[in-house]
Simulated scan of single mutants.
Amino acid sequence: MVGGSEMVLPLVEETARIDVRAVETGRVRVSTRTETTEQILRESLRSDGVGVTRVAINRTLAEGEAPPKVRTEDGVTVIPVLEEILVVEKRLVLREEVHIRSTTSNDEVEVPVTLRTQRAVVEHVSPDGHVAEQPSLPEETTS
């Protein structure tokens, strides 16, 4: 107070306010493209086969002679086939042998196949409609 009179001082305060508004600066368009390549796959196929040959023997085994067993001779499996026949006495007769020979063959085959690869294409579209394609990433290589 100065001299008995009151004095009013106006106080001023400033405030700040921030508003957020969306502004479109452009758009992004993403599409995919599929590319195909033709390739020939090559593979070696192995097949196993057997040949069966019947060899007539027709030999009567001697009294007390042991029957022949299955055996392998020079890569050929020999299976004896026996038959009992009734005469006045019973005798074991070696009727035949079955010879089984294994064979192996390799065949080269080629199979055409179609391989597909997809690539993403990213385009930036500005507000005025101008389209700019973004460079794609480098392709991965395998070694």
Rank of each mutant, 00 (worst) to 15 (best):
57 I>L: 09
29 R>M: 10
16 A>H: 06
115 L>E: 13
81 V>R: 13
6 E>W: 04
50 V>C: 09
59 R>C: 01
136 S>Q: 15
69 K>V: 15
96 E>H: 06
20 V>P: 04
18 I>L: 12
1 M>G: 13
31 S>T: 13
100 I>T: 14
70 V>I: 15
81 V>M: 09
129 G>F: 01
142 T>E: 11
104 T>F: 07
30 V>N: 14
64 G>H: 07
58 N>C: 07
7 M>E: 14
109 V>D: 12
133 E>D: 05
140 E>V: 12
51 G>D: 15
134 Q>W: 11
26 G>M: 00
131 V>P: 02
19 D>G: 08
33 R>Y: 02
34 T>W: 05
126 S>H: 02
65 E>Y: 05
131 V>T: 08
21 R>L: 11
53 T>R: 15
31 S>Y: 02
124 H>V: 07
88 V>G: 15
49 G>L: 02
59 R>D: 03
94 L>P: 00
71 R>C: 11
34 T>V: 13
45 L>C: 09
83 E>W: 03
127 P>C: 04
3 G>I: 02
9 L>D: 11
131 V>S: 02
15 T>V: 07
26 G>R: 00
143 S>Q: 11
134 Q>G: 09
54 R>A: 08
57 I>S: 05
13 E>C: 10
33 R>C: 03
68 P>F: 03
84 E>C: 04
128 D>C: 01
138 P>D: 08
1 M>K: 12
20 V>K: 15
17 R>T: 12
119 R>W: 08
62 A>T: 04
116 R>N: 10
24 E>S: 01
